[in-house]
């Protein structure tokens, strides 16, 4: 007879796994992908496929070179590739997108220890590096449905021109990055994630609320500010990233408010039209401190004694 297995309790585990969570996020991102393909044509699909493929390839390559366990089956690289693609203009040369995936996967994620260990959001940081390196390619916005016209027509985003209608903003028939223009598709995805209990509403609500209030005080149109640029994508898919956001509910609220305030400051008073990416990266750095000050008070706990210096 074989020996009986011995392990510590509990002996049952919930069916949820990291890859199942990532699958849910991917499902939630499908509507935005469909919208991007409809609005920006077949090249959107090519760009998405390229970014996803290269994200996975980089991660596999890294595991081979460093002789570490291959973690690509957790699907987080697929999510990162998809999110990065959604943050790029449809006309960007593929090699630039390739650099973006390299920065996101290798530099931001793997070099810090792989999934769960990175302090900054890989897709956001990839986008920022591309923006600083190739500012003109990253701000060449194709007009929606350009593919049915003879030449590629480019223009500024509505965030700069300020002349789009609410309907255009909501449906995404405007210039902008691949996956961020169609607010409707992103909101569907966000609601799906909340309904599936993958994300909590705290950070998105705080983020969106802060932007509305700030815009109103600054004399801007709150709805216009919400629906233009990458706000909705950021609200449901960027600031809700588990790894780079605080772990407590109150921490998530603080994080959302912080992202909202910095976004607005950059938008209204800074040199960039779009501030959400920088806001998220800045707030990512603060996450360990937010976690520290918002740690929960245990049930029935007496006040913790002050930790004395050097007592370890």
């Amino acid at each position: 007879m074989e020996k009986l297995a011995v392990s510590s309790s509990p002996h049952i585990k919930a069916p949820m796994t990291t890859s199942k969570i990532m699958t849910q996020v991917l499902i939630a991102l499908i509507p935005a992908g469909i919208a991007a393909t409809v609005i920006f044509g077949g090249r959107a699909l090519i760009l998405i496929g390229f970014c996803v493929a290269f994200s996975v390839i980089w991660e596999k390559l890294f595991s081979v070179v460093t002789k570490r366990k291959d973690t690509t089956d957790d699907l987080s690289a697929v999510v990162t590739g998809l999110l990065l693609a959604y943050n790029l203009p449809v006309t960007i040369p593929l090699w630039m997108a390739g650099i973006g995936t390299f920065v996101a996967i290798i530099i931001v994620k793997q070099l810090f220890g792989g999934i769960g260990q990175n302090f900054a959001n890989p897709a956001i940081t990839g986008r920022i590096v591309l923006m600083l390196s190739f500012p003109s390619a990253m701000t060449t916005w194709a007009e929606p449905f350009y593919y049915s016209a003879k030449d590629v027509v480019t223009g500024a985003t509505p965030l700069v021109t300020g002349d789009a209608t609410y309907k255009e903003l909501f449906l995404g028939t405007i210039g902008g990055s691949l996956g961020e223009t169609c607010s409707l598709a992103l909101i569907i995805g966000g609601i799906y994630l909340m309904a599936r209990n993958i994300i909590k509403p705290y950070a998105p609500a705080a983020f969106l609320g802060t932007i509305m209030v700030f815009s109103f005080i600054a004399g801007k149109d709150p709805i216009y500010q919400l629906l233009s640029g990458g706000i909705i994508l950021a609200a449901f898919f960027m600031i809700t990233d588990y790894v780079t956001a605080p772990v407590t509910d109150i921490g998530k609220v603080i994080f959302g408010i912080g992202c909202g305030v910095i976004t607005c400051v950059i938008r209204f008073y800074g040199g960039k039209a779009e501030g959400a990416s920088y806001a998220i990266l800045l707030m990512n750095i603060l996450v360990p401190y937010i976690d520290m000050v918002t740690s929960s008070t245990p049930f029935g706990a007496k006040k913790a004694e002050k930790i004395k210096e050097g007592e370890k």
């Binding site: 987080s76 792989g114 769960g116 588990y242 772990v247 407590t248 740690s295 929960s296 008070t297 049930f299």
Partner: peptide, 19 residues
């Protein structure tokens, strides 16, 4: 066992509100 992804499910589950 894989890396912690900081999903905070354990924090929401703990009856003693520990982390």
């Amino acid at each position: 066992q894989t890396n912690c992804i900081r999903c905070s499910r354990c924090i929401s589950a703990c009856p003693m509100k520990l982390m």
